[in-house]
């Protein structure tokens, strides 16, 4: 298995105010698939994403990705892991406002030794014509495409998307999801999308549901659709 999570636990707070964000969650995923994780607020899906992305560490349990044991990594090792293996796309894009589109991508390209061509990636997500624009000069959908390009430039093994269409209208959302689909095909990148939106689950190879910090279901999607066909 490419991703292997066993009995993952992550608690916040102590005593009565203790929150069990992950409470024995287990999950196995193959490389190169598109996975959608669904769950209500507070179910632990963002915590799971943080663990997969090396933004936080488990209190207990094991997480292995691509054969590397991510759980138990020290801060410095987690930095190296994020640097080479993980790409992030966030709901609010998180672009650096003082850098242009091209520079926002370049800033990641500068720290990776397996960088793809900036121009090719920009063309792939159709933002080449905006390369010298600043984020504040772009629409939400355009910014999210820049965010995807920035995540892809280092050719990550895993692309983590947190509510990536949450701030977009349906037209922009469809376009962004189409690019995600193409990225998966073109680069064979493992893509994990966390969302509230059940409709997005339609494009997943597998649909994972989380409840109370545990994986309540992990099923293959028998009716996988193309992004174009989703009713967003």
């Amino acid at each position: 298995m490419f991703i292997n999570l066993k009995n993952a636990k992550k608690y916040y707070g102590k005593g009565e105010s203790e929150v069990r964000a992950l409470d024995g969650a287990s999950l196995e995923l193959e490389e190169g698939g598109v996975y959608v994780i669904l769950g209500p607020s507070g179910s632990g899906k963002s915590t799971l994403l943080n663990m997969l992305g090396g933004l936080d560490s488990l209190d207990d349990g094991v997480l292995e990705i691509g054969g590397a044991k991510v759980s138990g990594m020290k801060d410095k090792e987690l930095v190296e892991y994020r640097r080479s293996d993980v790409g992030f796309v966030f709901q609010f894009y998180n672009l650096i406002p003082d850098l242009t589109v091209k520079e926002n991508i370049q800033v990641v390209s500068d720290i990776t030794d397996k960088s793809l061509s900036i121009d090719e990636v920009m063309e792939a997500v159709d933002i080449k014509k905006y390369e010298n624009h600043f984020p504040s000069e772009l629409s939400g959908g355009q910014q999210q495409r820049v965010s995807i390009a920035r995540a892809l430039i280092k050719n990550p093994k895993i692309l983590l998307c947190d509510e990536l269409t949450g701030a977009l209208d349906s037209k922009s959302a469809r376009l962004v999801l189409k690019f995600i689909e193409e990225v998966n095909k073109k680069f064979h990148t493992t893509i994990i999308i966390i969302t509230h939106n059940e409709a997005i689950a339609g494009m997943a190879d597998r649909i994972i549901r989380i409840k109370d910090g545990q994986v309540s279901s992990n099923k293959e999607n028998p009716q996988k659709m193309k992004a174009d066909e989703l009713s967003l």
């Binding site: 933004l55 410095k76 930095v79 892991y81 998180n94 720290i111």
Partner: peptide, 13 residues
């Protein structure tokens, strides 16, 4: 802070 945080997420040391 947001930019610094993002750089961290992107894997900057």
């Amino acid at each position: 802070t947001p930019s610094v945080s993002m750089l961290k997420v992107l894997g900057y040391r």
